[in-house]
């Protein structure tokens, strides 16, 4: 029994480490993108966008070094971070066959998916 508990806590710690690392990478990249967009805007000036760059044209705008597209990409990454945490937890709990945690994650994923659908329709 104690071995089972230790294995369980080892698995939890493994998930924590993975989530922590993913968050740190995402935070660094999003800050880099937003700061780069701001610096480009300050240096080159130009008209500020009042809305975010549409996701469909984001890669193209990024290639053209459009400051607004850099800021939009950074903001999208920020918004995706909590979703990433939930998805990583979901995958982890599936691997561990933790039924209740899987159901909770599934409910959250459905709710967030509905929120995203509501926003983009």
């Amino acid at each position: 029994m104690p071995e089972q508990i230790d294995k369980f806590h080892y698995e939890v710690q493994r998930l924590n480490n993975r989530v922590g690392l993913t968050l740190r990478i995402c935070i660094a990249v999003s800050l880099l993108l937003i700061t780069a967009g701001l610096i480009m805007f300050i240096i080159h000036g130009g008209e500020a966008m009042t809305a975010m760059t549409p996701v469909s044209s984001l890669p193209q705008e990024l290639m053209q070094l459009n400051p607004a597209s850099f800021i939009t990409a950074g903001l999208l990454l920020i918004l995706l971070m909590p979703v990433l945490i939930i998805l990583m937890s979901f995958a982890h709990f599936i691997a561990l066959k933790e039924r209740r945690a899987i159901i909770v994650c599934l409910i959250l994923i459905i709710m967030l998916a509905l929120s995203f659908i509501f926003i983009w329709t």
């Binding site: 800050l31 967009g37 500020a48 809305a51 607004a68």
Partner: peptide, 11 residues
Amino acid sequence: IYPFIVAPLIP
């Protein structure tokens, strides 16, 4: 949410 208002706040 206006990108150019939010962008300076975040850093």
